[in-house]
Design a binder for these strands. Structure first.
Lengths: 176, 176
DNA sequence: CGTCCGCTTGACTCAGATCAAACTTGGTGG
DNA sequence: CCACCAAGTTTGATCTGAGTCAAGCGGACG
């Protein structure tokens, strides 16, 4: 489910790009020619406002398609920067579009991928709109069976938008 | 941009449903036969965990397509309930799918709609992951020119996941 | 055996939620 | 025109959840 698009892309001509940590993959205003999928590392998309404030739009992990909306735009509306050393697959946008038009299966996979991303992003937002760590953990657990394994808690704290300590304490509180 | 799908749907056979506040539009497990678009009012999608905890997946406002992912599933994975009196348009899923397959323009509009929703939901999540009201407001303003009009601030506070008072104070702080 | 990393717990501090009260504004009806 | 009401805004006082810093614990691994 995660890397569903990676499989499909293996059918298309593609190139691998290697990025050092801190390197830009593209800048706002650049002409869009290719679609990118993260293979290793992670890429962050940010938009900078005039006031110096910046907004993170996406943190793309391995398997993620970068800036899905760029399929239909002519220039990028944000910057893409490698958080750490990373590799990405580049697929010419024209090939990507042609594949959507000619292969119903591919088009279907693309729509499914997008629906999935919508769902994930929306529930993440709803979880983050909760005020207490207890509520967030409840919501996060809503479609899971049990508490996750140790060793992953620190990561989960990040997903829940809280500090590791706060999550540890909340979990400890529930061991009764 | 908001109601882009509403226009397209005017080409398809559809029915209008009227819901009283508190009424269910569908339940988890129901067979999926139709796609819904909110016309007036608002519909909330929730999933309930065994522990009694529940997770809000989507708050659909007028113009929103309900549960985009249901286009490819057989049964609903969540409940849909009207927060208040609402009307929704119902389009048979088969018609919707056929339209995607036969009309490249429609398929394109659908993909654009989904990309857009992904972008919106992701940036909402990123804004909510910020800790202070000041940072959230900065991020929210990143792609805007100026502070919004009075009368909308209360609503914006909800978007920012904060209390109206906290937002008022932050805005007041900036009037120097 | 030492080092690293994730976990655990304690103490302190603060941003913001909450409750409360006053004041603007617009609209409604007498 | 004015009394009145509802919603949104402003400001103050209080309280608390959780962020932060800090110190200690335990297993994994070279």
């Amino acid at each position: 489910m995660i890397a569903i698009m990676l499989e499909w892309l293996s059918l298309l001509p593609r190139k691998q790009l290697v990025l050092a940590g801190g390197a830009y993959l593209f800048h706002r205003g650049d002409r869009i020619r290719t679609m990118f999928v993260v293979e290793t590392g992670s890429i962050t998309l940010t938009r900078h406002g005039k006031s110096g404030a910046s907004l993170v739009l996406q943190r793309a992990q391995p398997g993620s398609v970068l800036a899905e909306a760029s399929l239909f735009a002519t220039t990028y509306h944000c910057d893409a920067i490698a958080d750490m050393d990373a590799t990405v697959l580049a697929v010419p946008r024209s090939d990507f579009l042609r594949q959507i038009e000619t292969s119903p299966q591919f088009a279907r996979a693309w729509a499914m991928h997008l629906s999935q991303e919508v769902r994930v992003a929306r529930s993440r937002a709803e979880i983050l709109s909760l005020r207490t760590v207890a509520e967030r953990l409840d919501a996060w657990l809503a479609d899971k069976d049990a508490l996750p394994d140790k060793g992953t808690w620190k990561t989960i704290a990040a997903e829940l938008g809280t500090s590791p300590e706060a999550l540890y304490r909340e979990i400890a509180r529930r061991r009764f």
